[in-house]
C-alpha cells in the first residue's frame, strides 16, 4: 500500500479526533519518589477483637520504603497547575477495600465527581468511617459478603479513613479537582499523563512525612523521567 493511501485509510479509520490527539503537544511525567530515611519495621499493636481472623497483633506501617529501590510507597504526587481540559482523561476506578483487617490501598486518591466504591472482603464486620475534620463524608456498616457501597466525592481535600470496630485500621483518601495526580506504588513509581509543556510545580504529599514541592520542566512531547528524593526534615504536619 502506498504511503499516501495508507495515511488516508488511517484518517478514515481513526477519525479526525485521533489525529488531533496525536498532534496535541502533551507529555507524560514518570518518576519515582525516594526516601533516604531509615526503613521502619512498623509499630506492633494488639488486636482486641476478631483476633481469630485479624490476628492477635498487627504492624502499622506509616512510612513504607522499598529496600531495593528506596522508593516511598503511598506518596501522592500531583500537578495542580496543568491547564489541559481533562474531559477524556482515563480515570481509574476508585476502590477502597476492607481486606485482612486493613484498608487497601492505604492511600487512595480520586477526583471530585468520581464514585468511591467501598468493599469488604473479610468474613468479619467492619465500618468504613471517612471524615474531613469534624465533617463526616460517610460512615457505613460493612457486614461480611455485603454489596459494595458507592459514594461520590464532592469536596477536594484530605480525608481520614478509619474503622471504629478495629481501631488499628487507618487509611487516607485525597480528593483533587483535577485528574493530574498519582499515588506511588510499592517501588515508589508514579506516572501522570496529558501534561502541557512548560514548567510545572510537582507536589508530593505523604500522610506522615508531609508536603514537598519541586519544579519540573515538561518537554513539548514525549516522556520525562524524574526522581524526587523526599527530604527527611519535611514537617510531618505540613499539608
Amino acid at each position: 500500500m502506498k504511503p499516501i493511501l495508507l495515511t488516508v485509510t488511517l484518517c478514515v479509520m481513526l477519525g479526525p479526533s485521533a489525529l488531533l490527539r496525536a498532534e496535541s503537544p502533551m507529555s507524560t511525567l514518570v518518576g519515582r519518589i525516594t526516601y533516604p530515611g531509615p526503613i521502619e519495621s512498623g509499630q506492633v499493636v494488639a488486636v482486641t477483637r476478631d483476633s481469630s481472623f485479624c490476628g492477635t497483633t498487627t504492624a502499622i506501617h506509616t512510612v513504607t520504603v522499598n529496600a531495593k529501590t528506596r522508593g516511598l510507597q503511598g506518596a501522592v504526587v500531583s500537578i495542580d497547575d496543568n491547564t489541559v481540559p481533562a474531559a477524556d482523561f482515563p480515570r481509574r476506578p476508585l476502590v477502597l477495600t476492607n481486606t485482612r483487617c486493613a484498608f487497601s490501598p492505604r492511600i487512595v486518591a480520586g477526583e471530585v465527581g468520581q464514585q468511591l466504591e467501598i468493599r469488604n472482603d473479610d468474613p468479619v464486620m467492619h465500618n468504613t468511617h471517612i471524615s474531613m475534620g469534624p465533617r463526616t463524608f460517610v460512615n457505613v456498616a460493612m457486614i461480611p459478603a455485603s454489596r459494595p457501597v458507592e459514594k461520590p466525592l464532592k469536596q477536594p481535600g484530605i480525608y481520614l479513613v478509619q474503622c471504629d470496630a478495629h481501631k488499628f485500621m487507618r487509611a487516607t483518601m485525597v480528593a483533587f479537582t483535577h485528574p493530574f495526580f498519582s499515588v506511588t506504588d510499592d517501588t515508589g513509581a508514579f506516572q501522570i499523563a496529558q501534561l502541557t509543556p512548560g514548567e510545572h510545580l510537582v507536589t508530593v504529599w505523604h500522610d506522615t512525612l508531609g508536603t514537598f514541592q519541586q519544579r519540573v520542566t515538561i518537554p513539548a512531547r514525549g516522556e520525562v523521567t524524574i526522581t524526587i528524593e523526599y527530604p527527611a526534615h519535611v514537617d510531618a504536619n505540613k499539608k
Binding site: 468504613t128 468511617h129 469534624p134 460512615n139 457505613v140 456498616a141 455485603s146 454489596r147 471504629d164
Partner: peptide
C-alpha cells in the same frame, strides 16, 4: 442514616 460524627454507621446499604 447512622449518626454522623459518632461511630454509629449507616445500615441503609445493608438493608437495601
Amino acid at each position: 442514616t447512622g449518626l454522623d460524627g459518632t461511630p454509629m454507621p449507616a445500615y441503609a446499604d445493608q438493608f437495601a
